[in-house]
């Protein structure tokens, strides 16, 4: 699943480890999500969106 997580994260000058720590997941999991190799649950998507001050539409919808 393609998404804009990496794009938004980099635009906010956040490192992978910082976002992973904020969301409560490992760096490995975040990396897989950013590469589109793992489909996160809705709960995790919401947590990522909240941590990035963004919303689900802009991060995950019709990328």
């Amino acid at each position: 699943m393609n998404n804009k997580v990496k794009l938004v994260r980099v635009s906010k000058d956040l490192q992978q480890k910082d976002l992973a720590l904020e969301v409560g997941i490992s760096r490995q999991t975040l990396s897989l999500i950013e590469k589109g190799k793992y489909n996160p649950s809705l709960k995790l998507c919401v947590n990522i969106a909240e941590a990035l001050d963004s919303d689900l539409n802009s991060l995950f919808w019709k990328v």
Binding site: A20, G24, I25, S26, T29, L32, Y38, P40, A51
Partner: peptide, 27 residues
Amino acid sequence: MGKTKESLYIRIIKHIYGIHGYFDEYK
């Protein structure tokens, strides 16, 4: 969203499988 305390069950699973760090949904 800090690190919450893990239950005994999770700690046993992590120990048996040799998993370190967050036991998130992917793991």
